[in-house]
Design a protein around this nucleic acid. Sequence first.
DNA 1: CGAATTTGACCCCA
DNA 2: TGGGGTCAAATTCG
Length: 315
Amino acid sequence: MDGSWPENLDAIRKMAIEELMKGRELANQLRCVLSKSDDSAGSVKNLLMKIMKSFSTTLSILNVKSSVISQTQADFQVGLPCLVARNSEDSQESCKSNTITIPSKKNRRGCYERRTSLRTWKRDTPTLINDGQAWRKYGQKAILNAKYPRHYFRCEYKNDQGCKATKQVQRIQMNPPLYRTIYYGHHTCEDLKNPEMILECNTSTNPTENTSSIFISFDTSSLTNLKNVQHHPFFSSIKQECKEEKTSCDNEDHNQPPSLSSSDYFVSPDLMAAAGSPEQPMKVLPSTQDFDHEGLVSGMMEYVGLDLDDLHVEC
DNA sequence: CGAATTTGACCCCA
DNA sequence: TGGGGTCAAATTCG
């Protein structure tokens, strides 16, 4: 961390925490507003603006080029600024102005921002995953002591909307086939195919139980509302592609590793289970170290009637 | 011919 | 210092 905290670290941190608490409280209010569904767009927007301001203030307080910034942005940015900005004239600028501006280093070839501090979560599946997002492959690399190369994907809308979500896919086992997919960061883009916004939060009303679980995401794989899940476009598409997977698998030569490209989407058994195939066991293998996306998994678990504790935990 | 993928080069950072 | 993540020119595909 080369960004240095000032001497009065505790005071600064206290300020930051206060702002974060405020933001969380506002987000909670927003949840209540949205839960009453038929809300006037005005109050929602107003609340969102307050949330944005609160988070922006926090980020300004934490104005250091460090993992703190990255983590905080990953935790709280999650597309909110862009969501609101979509309704305003200065959408692009508004998005930029509501986040910490880190000096761009991408004017030169090979210069980029490391994203080691972004939120990550990992999934091991016997087939390639269709997570409902549009990915574009941007690299492939042989990894030391790994049998199979690692494939790098980024969000299709990275250039259009500045979405920083990326994922890595690597075959880790041939028989039975097993692929490891590691996701980095949340989608902040507007998914044109599945524009529905999902609000996820801890429903506990006891503040002592609920200390860290407000989570707002456009990630269409994050599903919490059982009633809505069955009609969610994401699952509709999965069911549709289920047929394609069957065809693909029928034709697949299992001795030949399938080409990993953004167009080669298959559906993993876990998603199939979530989409309505109870005979297929839900299989999510989060690392206790890497997996910090419990909201997502708990939503999926909730849908298929499993508890988070039932997960096979890797490592 | 434009879009998507591949691949070698570049550079950050553990 | 080398492994790994990203860039971007070259190549392939539809």
